[in-house]
Design a protein around this nucleic acid. Sequence first.
DNA 1: ACCTGAACACCGTTCAAGT
DNA 2: ACCTGAACACCGTTCAAGT
Lengths: 241, 241
Amino acid sequence: MAGSEDVPTPPWRKSRKPAPPKRQLSQDLIVDAGLRIVDTEGLDALSMRRVAQEFDTGPASLYAHVANKEELLELIYERVLGEIELPERDPSRWKEQLRAYAMEVHRVLTAHADVARVALASVPSGENSILAGEFVFGLLIEAGMSPREASLSMDRIHLYVTGDAYEGSLHYARMRAAGLDDPREYFERFAGQLADYYRALPTERFPHIQKFVDDLIADDGEERFRYGLELLLDGIEARMP
Amino acid sequence: MAGSEDVPTPPWRKSRKPAPPKRQLSQDLIVDAGLRIVDTEGLDALSMRRVAQEFDTGPASLYAHVANKEELLELIYERVLGEIELPERDPSRWKEQLRAYAMEVHRVLTAHADVARVALASVPSGENSILAGEFVFGLLIEAGMSPREASLSMDRIHLYVTGDAYEGSLHYARMRAAGLDDPREYFERFAGQLADYYRALPTERFPHIQKFVDDLIADDGEERFRYGLELLLDGIEARMP
DNA sequence: ACCTGAACACCGTTCAAGT
DNA sequence: ACCTGAACACCGTTCAAGT
């Protein structure tokens, strides 16, 4: 008789395969898969089941490497934060550096769509978050701010950046839900609808909104983000000794 | 034979009751019930099923009055916004009025815990949102700002207030999940843990965070909100002609 | 017009059982 | 130690059927 191992078991035999080569799971691989799903399908599509599917197994298999969904989300956020690059600190150029930092974090969060939601929710505790915190905090202190005010300023910049990115991610999700691909097209359609709505308002009760509709929809997300960032930076500058 | 209507049908009869007096549903009642649930059990506890339960029926019954869950959330948000009170506009005191407005919205959102999440997500379209918008926009324009900058400033103040309230609501949810009731107790426990964690960091890599731990946890949510609000207001003031 | 039960296609997490 | 199937207790929404 020939060795039976080279021959596939015929379907009618219904024998169970002799223990499949068992995928090797790991926290890193799980985070990889999770981030891939968030990037392509959005945060709402991320479920333990969906991640497990990526490894051809059930959700229970993930719990050996990850405590729960919340931890997985924070691990994904930390992974994303690893993408930002911090320069050498130069207190004499604190405003410029703080601006660049804020825009870099905003860019990275926006690139990964709705990871911003996690950013807003999570308390900085991973290595990358703390490194970022040390950068901003140190910069403000070295530029002459009191630790107390530097702490407050850092906190507010962080809230602003993540809050704006989060808001953006919600629009992004809405775009996806509407079946659109081009952010510009979405913005125009969206702004157009809003403008029509505003124009239809009764003039007596909403005179300003009605009159300056074009100004209300003039700036896109990027410009609005920049404007608010400058407001904050100027406020901080006014508090620098 | 006595009239059988005064006698309860015996359990073994298993007759079905002759059409119960059918609860009268309405959009208002549904929003009421929804807000009540959010206030007492949190936004995460709000589900169509949970709301329906309040009327002793299944979730399908709600769909005659509300398009879907998203619409219900926006209706709840609008209801909450109705609680803010807007004063007579006085452009000569724009900064004071804008500050009071921001704090009032923040207060109302915070009072209803995590309705802030909806606020951040939703585009202003209900009557109360538009009224609030007209107030801020008109105030800034009458104080002398260009419509374009007034539009940007209004947008950034809105993002800041709702973003901060949302962040606060996440802490609130965490407090509830930890089984605590007193926000002050939660803050102290939370800040204490954070401080311990920061103190344990390696000094070489995180010198500033490590050194000024006390300053990092000195201010609570209210003070941080106030600080950021003043940063923005000062930035806006610097742009007033 | 309004309401409903049942069904569909999902969730996160646990647990006993396997290797 | 790691992995798994099955189960538990949930979701939002649809739809045919009732009144």
